[in-house]
Design a protein around this nucleic acid. Structure first.
Lengths: 215, 215
DNA sequence: CCGCTCTTGTGTTAAAATTCACATGCTAAA
DNA sequence: TTTAGCATGTGAATTTTAACACAAGAGCGG
């Protein structure tokens, strides 16, 4: 650990949440220590990569033993800034929006959906999940400001997604997780990540011959 | 193009679906040609990378003009094996399973969910989406064989996911798209990709200071 | 036909990511 | 205490990925 945070490769950062997720599971299984080799086997990556990744942030292991699961977990939570709960707003109250708003896996891993927006008058006012009421998209800006919320998720149809992104950006969003199958145009200071299952499926079919029927 | 398909880096393959998706959108916008620079601007990557990626598969462009959108699209569809419709089975009929089963964006991009499984007796027999009936998980093997289906999606809670994956593998699945927040243990010949929104959110929060409240 | 502009495809270079390999140090058992 | 077995952290080597830069070709206006 002799570099500044901004020098650490983004690809390394991208693996840390996977390490953290695995440590959570191992903790729930009652395991108290984990070697880089053990972790690597579990994740299908090399032990050297895990050690090198972690070494960017400090020395968390003990020679001859490995890593203390609880300790490394807390260190990773701190590094990733998830030893707390981040408010997140969600736009889109379709099937996907419902699924996300109802998902109970966010809270324990650092996130809480605090608002759900849609511009369908039939949906506005409906309750989704335990405590979320669908609000009109016109209230995005105010909610973001009031809750000091920097993260948005977009779960609207592709043709509406850029417009929604623009509204979020205008309201000061800093990070967007986009489920719509498009690449958003955003200013430099806004980070966007994408989830599109078809991208993954098409990646898979490249390696699959045969078995493709119809049309 | 002087290499075999297996020599092409996986990271290159991973970008092709993004190119294809963008070409589909451009086509729907009425654009007939696209230069690598134009495409690169739109995607936030360099034009050189796009040209180099495509050059693994052939020469699709025209100097001075760029690429014909319809032609490049059809070439990419062929390369990715999505000029057809792949049958896909889905396991898990919770909120997420409903969202996926109801999503109309699969069909036009090469995939059709042909079966939905769950082991909750209260869900079995229910209709989801237009034509899908929830079946018991015990029927996975037979359905896979009957439909000659090689792709599965897992949308069950984390603690059930490995068991579901094992059943799919036992039934001869070749690729799995896993929405459960765990890393699956699978044999060499089975390809797995993962979708976990929290991984993306935690990647984002690394770069976000402040604004994290509570707990 | 000429000259200018544009864009591809690719050889080369540069940068980034991963793996190797080992000195160092901890643990446990005898 | 000594010895054998492990596992870390990290420079160095290797492999992979991305960027550069340009010759060659196409289009277009005059």
């Amino acid at each position: 650990m002799n570099t500044t945070l901004s020098d650490i490769p983004d690809i390394v950062i991208g693996r840390l949440p996977v390490y953290l997720r695995t440590l959570e599971i191992m903790a729930s299984e009652g395991q108290t220590v984990a070697s880089s080799q053990h972790l690597g086997m579990r994740l299908g990556i090399s032990s050297a990569q895990i050690r090198k990744d972690l070494s960017h942030f400090g020395e968390f292991g003990k020679q001859g033993t490995g890593y203390d699961v609880a300790f490394l977990r807390s260190q990773l939570e701190e590094i990733l800034n998830v030893n707390c709960v981040w408010p997140v707003v969600l736009v889109g109250a379709g099937y996907l929006g419902h699924a996300l708003a109802s998902y109970d896996g966010f809270e324990q891993r650092g996130f809480r959906i605090i608002a759900l927006f849609d511009n369908d008058p039939n949906k506005i006012g409906n309750r989704v999940g335990d405590a979320i009421i669908v609000q009109p998209t016109s209230e995005i800006a105010e909610t973001l400001r009031r809750c000091n919320c920097g993260i948005g998720m977009i779960a609207v149809p592709a043709q509406a997604a850029q417009q929604v992104a623009d509204a979020l950006i205008e309201a000061g969003i800093r990070s967007i997780l986009c489920y719509a199958p498009i690449t958003l145009r955003v200013p430099e200071h806004v980070r966007v990540e994408y989830i599109d299952p078809v991208i993954h499926l098409q990646h898979m079919t490249f390696y699959m011959q045969q078995n493709c029927v119809e049309e």
